[in-house]
Design a protein around this nucleic acid. Structure first.
Lengths: 111, 111
DNA sequence: TTGACATGTAGGAGATCTCCTACCTATTGT
DNA sequence: ACAATAGGTAGGAGATCTCCTACATGTCAA
């Protein structure tokens, strides 16, 4: 089970785990490297990494005695796909709002 | 405090709450209307709505003895903004993948 | 081989989540 | 005013989360 069966949103619900994914944006990192950015113990970071792994958000690659964690794109793309109907929703909303503003004052706006 | 102080990602971590926001895409709905789509008790749905409200994802408007819950765009836009660096990430990744495939097309590999 | 390092796992304490069943309040229709 | 309707809140049971400290495992260097 390398894949992501677990809930991606639940995995991203923790600020710690979001920071972990942010750290991994710049490339793969070892556990100790990642853990050094937090106050909490290294084993706790390890557990957060497991949650991310179970959600498919990261993968691990062994390299000697290091384990490099790497960000995986697919689950994030899922989030993006989930978001798209809502993007349409707020675009419509903003369009409606602008219409309203336009008709409420005939002034010309800058920009 | 109508605004969303609570964690949007945590609010979206629950499948029930994601389904609630999906239901609200088509427009404002009352609590009973929303609750009718779930197996769980109405008070439990009410609590989920509170979590969404605390995150700013929905707002409530009283209309007689009904309370209409309405989807709010702003927190979803925050999610979208959070996502954008990752979008860049996976685009780069896909671009790299295509490059790799293109150059593998030239020579023949086994399989 | 031995020691040092990198990391995962076990087990547990305490906090939080999720659901329930009462119960309370506000609004509407008669 | 009274009953019915809509919906929030209290309190609690059980599950899950989050963190910790040991401890186990695997790898490298001497």
């Amino acid at each position: 089970m390398t894949a992501g069966n677990a809930d991606v949103f639940a995995a991203l619900a923790s600020p710690v785990r979001r920071e972990l994914t942010a750290l991994l944006l710049s490339g793969p990192r070892s556990v100790n490297d990642l853990a050094s950015h937090f106050e909490m113990s290294r084993p706790s970071v390890s557990e957060h990494l497991r949650v991310l792994r179970d959600a498919g958000l990261v993968s691990e690659e062994r390299s000697g005695r290091l384990r490099l964690y790497r960000l995986e794109a697919e689950p994030l793309m899922e989030v993006s796909r989930w978001l798209s109907p809502y993007e349409r929703f707020w675009r419509d909303r903003l369009a409606g709002l602008r219409e309203l503003l336009d008709e409420e004052n005939g002034d010309d706006h800058e920009r």
